[in-house]
Simulated assay, not measured.
Amino acid sequence: MFPPITDWDAAYDNAPAIPDGASWPGRWIEPARDFRQAMMAQGRARLDLAYGPGARNRLDLFLPKGTPKGLVVFVHGGFWMALDRSFWSHLAAGPLAHGYAVAIPEYTLCPQIRIAGITTETGAAITAAAAMVAGPLRLAGHSAGGHLVTRMVSATSPLGAGLRDRIAGVMSISGLHDLRPLRATWRQATLSIDAAEALSESPALLEPLPGTRLTCWAGARETSEFLRQNALLANIWRGLGAATAVVEEPDRHHFDIIDGLADPDHPMIRALLA
């Protein structure tokens, strides 16, 4: 029998459970900056592209050598209330090596917007990026970004029908797929998730779009709630007709789990582009 959770903050706070956990997200700043500079020097970076009217409605687009085979969109995390696109540029290296363009958007943060509004903005960002690059579309997101990319293939997706048909696969990395437990954490003071939004914005409580192919990937050293959330969506959506897979990568935690995206030979990249 699993005991009830009494400390919801600890269940969703990753840094205290990781040695030197406070060093993230700072560890990503330098490699991301160096990667952008190298891509700009090669003429393969299009930065600060607007996809909407908001101050944070911006994305960066990185281009491979030659004609892109398709587009990968990476949506960042931060519990819908922190971080921006500048932390993640280096994660484009893996897909780029395989000939895919990579778009990395950012979005308005809570409490200036509700999570439902971030879903709408993410749809607008993907729509804008997809108009710049032809071919199949693959979505990846980390933590809250995992929530956002799986919302794109939920029944109430903000994406248009033609764009939905281009989505070849979705990868939720340490994703949050049921928002209801988060209402019991300290972040609720900023997120203000009400009961109705928890139901309408939780991918685990929605049906997947027909033909959805989903991989839920997490680090084996994550908190029990992130591991549960990782397996939860793949389990439910498989029962609703989606093709799903669950991976718990050994010796990885909530922050270093995304390193796989930067490595062209990592199994995470092979799964994303399969």
Rank of each mutant, 00 (worst) to 15 (best):
D48S: 14
D48I: 06
L49A: 07
L49G: 03
L49Q: 15
A50E: 07
A50M: 02
Y51D: 05
G52T: 05
G52H: 10
G52K: 02
G54C: 09
A55H: 11
A55R: 14
N57R: 12
R58H: 02
R58V: 09
D60A: 01
D60Y: 00
D60N: 12
D60Q: 00
L61S: 07
L61P: 11
L61Q: 04
L61W: 03
L63H: 01
L63C: 06
P64D: 01
K65Q: 14
K65V: 12
G66A: 06
T67C: 03
T67S: 09
P68G: 06
G70L: 02
G70W: 00
L71Y: 00
V72N: 05
V73P: 10
F74S: 07
F74M: 13
F74T: 04
V75D: 04
V75L: 12
V75T: 09
V75E: 04
H76L: 09
G77F: 08
G77E: 13
G78K: 06
M81V: 03
A82S: 15
A82E: 15
A82V: 01
L83Y: 14
L83Q: 14
L83F: 13
R85W: 07
R85T: 08
S86P: 07
S86L: 06
F87D: 08
F87T: 08
W88D: 14
L91I: 09
L91H: 07
L91M: 12
L91N: 04
A92F: 01
A93P: 06
G94Y: 03
G94V: 06
G94A: 12
P95E: 10
P95D: 08
P95M: 09
P95F: 05
L96I: 08
L96R: 01
A97C: 05
A97V: 04
Y100S: 03
Y100C: 05
Y100A: 09
Y100M: 10
A101K: 02
V102Y: 03
I104F: 08
I104Q: 08
P105F: 02
E106F: 02
Y107C: 11
Y107K: 13
L109G: 10
L109V: 11
L109F: 09
C110F: 04
C110M: 14
P111Y: 05
P111S: 03
P111I: 00
Q112D: 15
Q112M: 14
Q112L: 15
I113H: 13
I113Q: 13
A116T: 15
G117C: 05
T119C: 15
T120Q: 15
T120I: 12
E121W: 10
G123H: 02
A124L: 11
A124E: 10
I126R: 01
T127V: 11
A128Y: 08
A129V: 06
A130M: 01
A130V: 03
A130S: 15
A130W: 00
A130G: 12
A131W: 03
M132G: 09
M132T: 11
V133Q: 00
V133F: 00
A134K: 07
A134V: 02
G135A: 07
G135F: 00
P136S: 06
P136Y: 00
P136T: 01
L137M: 06
L137C: 08
A140Q: 00
G141I: 00
G141F: 01
G141R: 00
S143F: 02
A144N: 12
G145H: 03
H147M: 08
L148V: 07
L148N: 11
V149G: 10
V149W: 05
V149H: 06
T150C: 15
T150F: 10
